[in-house]
Amino acid sequence: MQKIETQIDEAFKNTFLLPREKAVTQFLVDVLHSKYKFREDDKKIEVISLYYYASSPLSFLFALPNYEYYSPDKTIQIAELHLKEHSFEDYSPMDVQELCKKVLDQNNIDYSAYLDEHGHLDYAHYWENQFGLESNFIMNCWKNAKEKTQSKMLGFLESSDGESGMYDLDNNYVIPFDVSLDEYLRSHGFIIKGD
Rank of each mutant, 00 (worst) to 15 (best):
H82M: 11
K3C: 06
E10P: 09
E98F: 15
I8T: 03
F190A: 11
K143W: 05
P72R: 02
Q106A: 12
Y184S: 09
I4T: 03
Y67A: 13
P176S: 13
N140Y: 14
H82Q: 12
L185M: 10
L157S: 05
A23G: 00
F62N: 13
D9M: 07
S56C: 05
I76C: 02
L157Y: 08
I191S: 15
T15W: 03
E89N: 12
L58Y: 01
F156M: 06
Q77G: 02
M1L: 07
E128Y: 01
E5S: 08
W127N: 05
I45S: 08
E134K: 00
S49I: 07
E147M: 09
E5N: 07
Q7I: 06
S160Y: 07
K102N: 15
P65A: 05
K148F: 05
F177M: 14
D105A: 12
Y184W: 09
L17C: 00
K152F: 11
M153Q: 15
K43Y: 10
P93D: 03
Y114P: 07
Q2I: 11
H118W: 13
M153Y: 03
S164Q: 11
F137L: 03
F88Y: 01
D42I: 08
V174N: 04
S164T: 13
E21K: 12
S159G: 03
N171K: 15
S135T: 15
G194I: 05
F12V: 03
K101F: 13
E134C: 00
I78F: 10
E85Q: 14
L18V: 10
Q97A: 14
L32T: 00
G165T: 00
Y173H: 13
Y36G: 07
S160D: 08
N136Q: 14
L58K: 01
S135V: 14
Q130R: 05
S135R: 12
N107H: 09
K37L: 11
L115A: 13
N172T: 12
H82V: 08
E89T: 08
I138H: 02
S160I: 07
Y53T: 06
M139P: 05
L18D: 13
E40G: 00
S56H: 04
F88V: 01
D182A: 11
K44F: 09
A113C: 08
M1T: 06
E68I: 11
Y69N: 08
Y126W: 14
L181A: 08
D110W: 06
N108W: 04
Q130L: 01
K152A: 12
R20H: 00
Y91E: 01
S49N: 09
G194M: 05
F131K: 09
D110R: 07
E158T: 11
S92V: 10
E89V: 04
L115T: 11
D161P: 05
E68A: 13
N171Q: 14
A124E: 07
I8Y: 07
D41T: 01
N144E: 13
L17E: 01
L17R: 03
A63L: 11
M166S: 10
I48F: 12
V179Q: 13
M166P: 09
T75W: 04
H86K: 13
K13Q: 15
N107P: 03
K148R: 12
L81I: 05
E68V: 14
S151E: 04
